[in-house]
Amino acid sequence: MPSQIVSLVVNGEHREFIAAPGATLLACLRESLGLTAAKRGCAQGACGSCTVLVDGRPEASCLVAVETVAGGSVRTLEGVATGGDLDEVQSAFVDCFATQCGFCTSGMIMVAEALLDRNPDPSEEDVIEAISGNVCRCTGYRPIVQAVLEAAARRREEAVTR
């Protein structure tokens, strides 16, 4: 099977690149597009560090064959801050000390973005459920949960003042 040209909308921009058969979305983002925020932790869909949003849904990009999402819309951590400002989730992660080594952070933020997009007022249980596929071996889960709740509160407040 020959390589093929794949088109994706990545962080709002139209991108085209050549993908070998069976190439994963993670490999294409990192190696073809230079977007390295999504990480390879296990390459088997178990750790969540490669999570990106595909048409708004969080997906383990290490398990997605890129041709299966051709033409789709992908959002990575690089596309979260707009106009140079960190968004509510990012700034809440900073303020709540929700990062340690930083390796799981990209995946954690992307599942949080997906959660808050569909549920602006999540309970603590909702947050725990949302991040349940993401491993943090520094075991900083408590501040991560708090950061996501804080981000939700900040986003609701902004919606009111806007």
Binding site: T36, R40, V94
Partner: peptide, 21 residues
């Protein structure tokens, strides 16, 4: 005191060894 590496972590700009290609 904010962590000096936090902004790199939350933006994906922190360079881990495997980000070097």
């Amino acid at each position: 005191v904010q962590r000096s590496d936090a902004r790199g972590h939350v933006t994906g700009r922190t360079e881990f060894f495997e980000d070097v290609a």
